[in-house]
Design a protein around this nucleic acid. Structure first.
Lengths: 150, 150
DNA sequence: TGGGACCATATGGGCGTCAATGGGAAGCGA
DNA sequence: TCGCTTCCCATTGACGCCCATATGGTCCCA
């Protein structure tokens, strides 16, 4: 219906309750519904201390990337280790919440709050302060990146 | 209809009400209507303490830059973190107002008033005093400082 | 040319809906 | 039985939707 709303965008911080649950932002849940995603796949980000969450397409995208690389290269080996060995399936409850497991806490440093960060075709779970610092660093570092004219 | 009305020009300062809303200047709303923009995309300016607001084309311009990089590279990852994770969707209410969220307040320093600044293909939200100072600085020729080397 | 009707914008606030959150109770496996 | 998960329902606070008022300017007409 809306051409742009079908992607994961923006960020929001929600609290973890006493049972270790946290609500996925309604906007993100709407994207999941629209894409008919029912089972979520989680894996560690390759750069940041964040957990990437998406549908089966997220896994497939990483697998294609692995397949493109030399299968005996250290890079492909490490990616496979992270993607296949570090990946976890996850479901949302009836209210659209997910359980914050130790797998997530250990890798991200999340304790009481989760920042949900849109990444277009998937979203990520961050420790709020870590996200803020990564944003500042990315903004300052951008000047050194190769800028290509439009 | 009018050739001049199809871009964002000039600036205006409006008050934030008790519910945290502020009217987008009618002239800017007219441009949005003419461009058939219904959902707004907001992003932190890369140089100034201002929030850039535009239609989907504003987002797509940044995404084209990301698409040119290796999708699994740290550079693309950081760009996506800024553009997808740092951007937010926003809608105007029936009276043409937008909600000034903490996301906007924290980055701009806006408290009680918002200065809307036209930037041709998009417009920006500024803290009035900060905008005034940036204008003075620009007149004194210091506007060249933020320009990044090619 | 001055007064007043008229209009568009900006602003204020009521109210219903929904998302986020909290917690009880039932089901299940160890 | 005990701990953990799943299902269900209650609360509340924010936001969207609606209507009312203020304010300043323009246009018309006497």
């Amino acid at each position: 219906m809306f051409g742009v709303m079908n992607r994961f965008l923006s960020n929001a911080t929600n609290r973890i309750d006493s049972k270790g649950r946290v609500s996925v932002p309604a906007m993100f849940r709407a994207v999941l519904t629209q894409r008919n995603v029912q089972e979520l796949y989680c894996l560690q980000d390759l750069v940041f201390p964040a957990i990437s969450v998406g549908g089966p397409d997220l896994l497939e995208r990483y697998e294609r990337q692995i397949a493109q690389a030399d299968p005996f290269s250290p890079e492909a080996n490490m990616m496979s280790l992270l993607v296949h060995g570090g990946g976890v399936y996850m479901r949302l409850d009836a209210e659209g919440r997910l359980a914050v497991t130790d797998f997530i806490r250990d890798f991200t440093g999340i304790t009481t709050e989760v920042t949900f960060v849109g990444r277009s075709d998937h979203f990520q779970l961050w420790q709020p302060q870590a996200f803020h610092e990564a944003q500042v660093a990315a903004r300052e570092g951008r000047a050194r990146l190769p800028v290509r004219p439009a």
